[in-house]
């Protein structure tokens, strides 16, 4: 794997995105902003007047903003790493054209993951700007939520793209989205604190990569002063997912593209 080779793959993805960006504006930007309006402002109005007390005495908009930020990064990375990968390996076979050049299968894989990170950065920037304008980002530490969202995206993009590289059809993809990504979206401390879950289920949330992403983003946007050791733990968990995914993906892409 060479850095310049990976950049060329990213460049290709960017060029494709130039043609297709309109389609992703809804799912990666408008949808989370609508959620923010409905949940943060609408539902939040009820919650903040009620009896419930959020950790750190946050208002609901402030609580849910980082949740949505990380969850959107996850969802975008997940869907981008399933069907488009199948297009590259099977349907349109563009990846096969790429490995006929000096690029290697690992370059193609890592380029995909890096691009997932770039896209997450763009989407997260736009979302954070809107959320800040609405008052959901009280701390200047909020900018640190950007790299946290990018890390969350790569933690999902790498293993899912690696998995997609093993598949001959897309039948399993909707199952992954509905039974994997969707529950994480709901139960990873996104919309309510994990402490609200039944005690037996709470440890499940802790192994969710999204929970680590949400915790990091929330610490950043609220400026809660998370202990460095805790932050490092979250970063390590997400980094481990991304690294394991990259290790696996360079294998599955190698097997698929150079057999």
């Amino acid at each position: 794997m060479a850095a310049t080779a990976v950049l060329r793959v990213v460049e290709r993805e960017a060029r494709v995105f130039r043609h297709l960006w309109r389609g992703s504006v809804f799912s990666n930007f408008l949808a989370p902003v609508l959620f923010l309006g409905a949940m943060g402002l609408g539902l939040g109005g009820l919650i903040d007047d009620g009896a419930g007390e959020l950790p750190g005495g946050l208002d609901y908009l402030t609580f849910v903003t980082p949740g949505l930020l990380a969850a959107t990064a996850m969802q975008g990375a997940a869907s981008e790493s399933l069907w488009p990968v199948m297009a590259g390996t099977k349907w349109i076979r563009t990846y096969h054209g790429m490995v006929a050049t000096p690029l290697s299968a690992t370059d193609v894989f890592v380029g995909h993951v890096v691009w997932a990170g770039v896209r997450a950065a763009v989407a997260a920037t736009a979302f954070l700007a809107v959320a800040a304008a609405l008052g959901g980002v009280p701390s200047a530490w909020g900018v640190v939520a950007l790299p946290a969202a990018v890390l969350t995206a790569t933690a999902f993009a790498a293993p899912l793209a690696a998995f997609a590289g093993t598949q001959d059809t897309d039948v399993s993809f909707p199952v992954i989205m509905r039974l994997g990504v969707m529950p994480l979206f709901l139960f990873s401390g996104t919309f309510f604190p994990v402490a609200q879950l039944p005690g037996a289920v709470q440890p499940v949330a802790w192994i969710s990569p999204l929970w680590h992403g949400v915790e990091l983003c929330r610490a950043a946007t609220t400026g809660s002063g998370m202990a460095p050791i805790v932050a490092a733990g979250h970063v390590a968990a997400l980094g481990a997912c991304a690294a394991a995914g990259c290790w696996w993906g360079s294998r599955t892409f190698g097997r698929r593209l150079t057999q």
């Binding site: 460049e11 290709r12 060029r15 349109i92 563009t94 096969h96 054209g97 006929a100 000096p102």
Partner: peptide, 28 residues
Amino acid sequence: LGVVPQEDTLDTELTVWDNLVIYGRYFG
């Protein structure tokens, strides 16, 4: 090398021009 595979592997979402450009970029 220049390779014309039996099955096309063009970037069908891109334009004709962009296909040439992007392929040239792969070669640096």
